[in-house]
Write a protein that binds this DNA or RNA. Structure first.
Lengths: 122, 122
DNA sequence: CCAACACTGAAGTGATCACTTAAGTATTGC
DNA sequence: GCAATACTTAAGTGATCACTTCAGTGTTGG
């Protein structure tokens, strides 16, 4: 049980996604991989951390679905999974369009009722 | 010092942003706030956690820049900051367009060289 | 005035995170 | 064959996270 005593819920895909993107090293690896596939050591090169740490970041990225990899010989080659980011993108753009619509309605209301005062959040 | 013994870097805005979005309760609060401003207790209502926990989530959301709030009397009213999500949106769409460009180049190459075999990641 | 209300702040706890080191296991070039 | 290469796995550590409880503080309706 967790601290709340409630049953643990399995993490949703969006949780894993945003969690994966929340670390600058992981974002950096994704940025690198958008330029093309790379081996683990190539991905590790820009970072001061151990290879082990990089592999652990890679595992997070794979669990989130952002990255896939396959091993050939002794080299593991990683690539981004193109469709993966669209889930996060959709959530964000849904919020954006929602509040744009809301601001439009508010603007329309204010235009229709110019006598009303500002400062009202409702 | 951190476990690596290296100096700590201050978290980047995108770190705070994605970290804030990585929790389902916080995303839920953002979703609620896209429909319009709400008080702390209104935001807390759907959740089984304590009010204190909700306030702590709200602090994370404020630190990320996603949410703003002001107190009037004994009620704190929260609203989303419309522009905030665009930072995350831009990062994601930058990656998307980058790998789309890359896939286009790859497709063009394959079209120009139909004799080549598949399975090459380079 | 005073009780109910809407938070606020501090302290504590167990789980998870971001690393580390150390000791493996397959591959490959020579 | 054998050393170098490219990871892989396990165990450990301190920091941070997501909560909790409890004890305030300021506000407001009756």
């Amino acid at each position: 049980m967790n601290p709340a005593g409630r049953p643990i819920a399995p993490p949703e895909p969006l949780d894993l996604m945003f969690q994966a993107l929340a670390d600058p090293a992981r974002r950096g690896m994704v940025e690198r991989l958008t330029l093309g596939p790379a081996s683990v050591s190539e991905l590790a090169a820009p970072y001061a951390m151990s290879l082990s740490a990089v592999v652990q970041h890679l595992q997070v990225l794979e669990a989130s679905g952002l990255v896939a990899s396959q091993k050939v010989g002794r080299v593991r080659t990683c690539q981004i999974r193109p469709g993966a980011l669209s889930l996060a993108e959709q959530w964000i753009s849904a919020r954006r369009t929602e509040w744009e619509r809301r601001l439009d309605r508010l603007g329309q209301y204010l235009a229709d009722h110019p006598e009303d005062e500002e400062g009202d959040l409702r």
